[in-house]
């Protein structure tokens, strides 16, 4: 692992013009890669060079570049968000790679996440799952007094463990079945742990699971690969929580 010297990398990057066109891998050799660059900065540099040569830059999604928005969807060397655990692609540094290494970059692959262009996929399916039930119905207006609903620290912490989901979709991308169970489970579990979530719990889990199904995500086989690639480390227990909620809705 180099830490100071600039590196040369051989990139194999997926290029695809639109949702229905056929894609292919394009090879680029990148020299002068500073090991302190982030993975996205390395791609910025590549795009600059491509544009200088009159070529089309590679489309990739990004926004916050600090691991909280969930838009940097890259499958790097076969793993969503790359080789470093609990790290979004934008937080991955080039020092994690070796000089002369071949690095492959593919988009999320799932029917429910159609490719828009190159590495950018459409994740609206997640928004629709969220809109189906990932909320609490409450009176708007002046804010409720902070201590009006007592919530134990334990419950708040548990809820937060699931609420940290940034909705990036790596769980779907990594799942051999393309299941959205970790995402949907986290969005359900965060409410299941709080008193505010209780009144609508049955309706919520049924609606969100139904929507997940409609979007064309696959079934879960408890591979837990989702947990391994989740940039915020959400445990597969989110999926178990979703099932517990579902059992409650059955009766």
């Amino acid at each position: 692992m180099s830490t100071h010297e600039n590196m040369t990398l051989h990139l194999k990057i997926w290029r695809q013009n639109g949702p229905d066109s056929k894609g292919h891998f394009e090879d680029h050799t990148m020299d002068e890669v500073n090991p302190h660059m982030s993975f996205l900065e390395m791609l910025d540099l590549l795009n600059e060079r491509l544009m200088q040569n009159g070529k089309q830059p590679i489309e990739f999604d990004h926004d916050c570049r600090e691991g909280i928005c969930g838009s940097c969807n890259l499958v790097i060397n076969g793993i969503p968000h790359g080789p470093e655990m609990r790290t979004a692609a934008c937080q991955l540094h080039m020092r994690k790679f070796n000089d002369g290494e071949t690095v492959t970059i593919e988009p999320w692959r799932a029917k429910a996440f159609p490719i828009i262009k190159d590495l950018v996929v459409d994740r609206d399916a997640f928004d629709r799952i969220q809109a189906a039930g990932g909320f609490v119905s409450t009176r708007t207006g002046s804010m409720v007094d902070a201590n009006a609903i007592p919530i134990s620290k334990e419950a708040a912490d548990k809820s937060m463990d699931y609420a940290v989901c940034i909705g990036c979709g790596a769980c779907v991308a990594a799942c051999p079945n393309s299941s959205a169970s970790l995402f949907t489970g986290a969005k359900i579990a965060q409410f299941a742990k709080l008193p505010q979530g209780a009144p609508e719990r049955k309706r919520r889990v049924v609606a969100m699971v139904e929507q997940m199904e409609k979007e064309g995500f696959g079934d879960c086989s408890n591979y837990a690969e989702c947990e391994a690639v989740c940039p915020v480390g959400i445990s597969i227990s989110a999926i178990a929580e979703m099932r517990k909620e579902y059992v409650k809705a059955l009766f």
Partner: peptide, 19 residues
């Protein structure tokens, strides 16, 4: 059906993965 076009490169992350 859920993934009509498969990955060319795919690897398990290891760690908590049960693959």
């Amino acid at each position: 059906k859920a993934r009509p076009e498969n990955y060319t490169y795919y690897k398990s992350q290891g760690g908590p993965s049960k693959q």
